[in-house]
Design a protein around this nucleic acid. Structure first.
Lengths: 143, 143
DNA sequence: CACACAACTGGAATCATTCCAGTTTAGGGT
DNA sequence: ACCCTAAACTGGAATGATTCCAGTTGTGTG
């Protein structure tokens, strides 16, 4: 058995698996992001409130931070848009973003794999990750 | 003679070259970003005020937008940081950013060139640009 | 089953940026 | 040279996303 539960596992198990307390807000948030990939904090707030009634704004931000720190979620911050959260973590994938409507799609690393991970001149930086964002128009907006 | 003035040309000529009115604020902002590559709006505001005395916050944002729209500046928006502006435009270069201090370095496109420009699965998007950001630690912060 | 600390509440604050209505100014036209 | 109009700038208020804070609640360990 793997030490980390698969993403399909029940939210409760995912939380215990990374040593986080199981709370209603966390379970609901995890499910919300599962249902709506690339959800904003506000989207999550909406879903969680639908499910639990009242939840504070702060709780949602706290939850999203805790889950992101535990690598159960990944945060992406497209220029000019509020942060978005997704369940696919740890697989170095990238994103296509529509300039018009902001729709986001997942893109697996291109040409071979991880081609952009090593810049020619790294300025002496110790590089941890390379993030690729494709900007363009989604099928709907290009019509 | 080329239709676009080289970046080394006096700010006044650059502005006329793209059909923008020559104003003190624009000239000063252009010089400020030339002096301090990857400057924030606030940095530019500081420099411009040093040079001209009083300038409104709004004027600096207006100027930065006008210059960016005219491709005399390029705006970069690193996740979790205020926007930054640079003079190198039109050459599809990328950036290394220090997770600790936020220092930014320019990186020419890597392996061969433009390797990440075409994703395998583009989700039907019409892709305009690919943006690569390397996250890591700068020489100072990795010590 | 109690208790300590993690998580949550609600309200105010912050930061970068934008909106707005009124004033000034660059530069083409006479 | 100087008018005049659209473009640029002023200053103050507003916005949206996110965070800070002090007090309350709840999870799960001992």
């Amino acid at each position: 058995m793997p030490s980390t539960a698969p993403a399909a596992a029940p939210p409760e198990d995912l939380l215990r698996g990374v040593g986080l307390r199981v709370t209603a807000a966390r379970v609901a948030a995890l499910r919300a992001v599962g249902d709506q990939q690339h959800a904003t904090a506000d989207d999550v707030l909406g879903s969680v409130r639908d499910e639990l009634g009242t939840v504070s704004v702060q709780a949602v931000y706290d939850v999203l931070h805790a889950l992101t720190d535990a690598h159960l979620l990944r945060r992406i911050e497209p220029a000019g848009h509020p942060a978005r959260y997704e369940r696919r973590t740890g697989d170095n994938h990238h994103h296509v973003i529509c300039r018009v409507c902001g729709t986001i799609g997942d893109v697996d690393c291109t040409v071979g794999h991880a081609p952009c991970l090593t810049p020619n001149d790294d300025h002496g930086f110790v590089i941890e990750t390379a993030e690729v964002t494709y900007w363009g128009l989604c099928p709907g907006c290009s019509a």
